[in-house]
Simulated assay, not measured.
Amino acid sequence: MESGLNFIDLILKASVLVQLVMLALVGMSIASWAIIFQRRSIISNAMDNAKKFEQKFWSGMDLSKLYNEVTARAVNPQGLEALFVSGFKEFARHKKQSTQSTGLVIEGTHRSMRVALSREVEKLESSLSFLATVGSISPYIGLFGTVWGIMNAFIALGEVKQATLQMVAPGIAEALIATAMGLFAAIPAVMAYNKFAKSVEKLETQYINFMEEFANILHRQAASSAEVKQHVSA
């Protein structure tokens, strides 16, 4: 004698609307896990690359040599390398125009790095909004399927003269599966979103700190070059 309820049978015997709700939740869960694995890899690589580049940057290596090395290795630099390339390229371009003051050179360089920073953070945050959406709406979608299934169960119960728990149990059980699926989709999405959002915030802070320190280095170089030019002209 079989005991308990067969979940596969409950899903197959559920109403069409409840089945559609379950299918939607399964699809959202699969998409969430795909994004979770993708974001995990991308953010982890970004952290590793940022650490390696900072070590090389602060090793005392000549900035021009480092710029040539980065641009030769990567067509589209990512992370801190993108900020460095953007800032140094703009700095070199402004520096060729000897009529510009140090303040204007650094302002243009800083502006270029802020644009690069915005682009890099946007890349890191890509698809995180989908995880937040899944985490927010999945329980409600599952609850909708539950309410609909229970409503159908009680309607069917009202059509018989003598109701028993055995008659109503399958309908309620299939309805509750929708809620369970909603939670199954929502919980990993919320946990992953919170973790990734914190990691992106940490990376953004690291990028901003590097940008400010790099701007200070370029400011000292520009000021030193301006002093040399003044002595030569004098």
Rank of each mutant, 00 (worst) to 15 (best):
E69N: 06
G135K: 00
F88A: 01
F7Y: 01
Q100A: 11
I155G: 00
K95Q: 13
L83F: 12
R111Q: 06
F57D: 04
A215P: 07
V16I: 15
E212G: 05
V85I: 07
A31E: 13
G142E: 00
V26R: 06
Q221L: 08
I217R: 11
G79A: 09
A74E: 13
D48P: 07
T164L: 08
N152D: 12
G60W: 07
L63P: 05
N209E: 09
S98R: 13
V168H: 07
A74D: 09
I141D: 00
T71G: 01
A50Y: 04
F7N: 05
R73A: 13
E90Y: 08
V147C: 15
E69L: 04
L20E: 08
L17N: 03
F196P: 08
T109L: 02
R73Y: 10
F91R: 04
A34K: 04
F196I: 06
F130G: 03
H94S: 11
S59T: 10
Q230G: 03
T179V: 05
Q100R: 14
I187P: 10
T205K: 06
A74H: 10
I172D: 06
R119M: 06
K56V: 15
M61P: 05
K56C: 13
S44L: 15
A46S: 15
S138R: 01
E81F: 01
T164D: 03
M211T: 15
E54Y: 11
H110D: 07
V232F: 04
A132S: 13
F154C: 11
M47T: 08
E90H: 03
G27V: 14
S129V: 15
T146I: 12
P188K: 05
A197G: 14
R40L: 09
S41W: 14
A132G: 11
Q162T: 00
A74V: 12
A153K: 02
E212F: 11
N68L: 03
A156W: 06
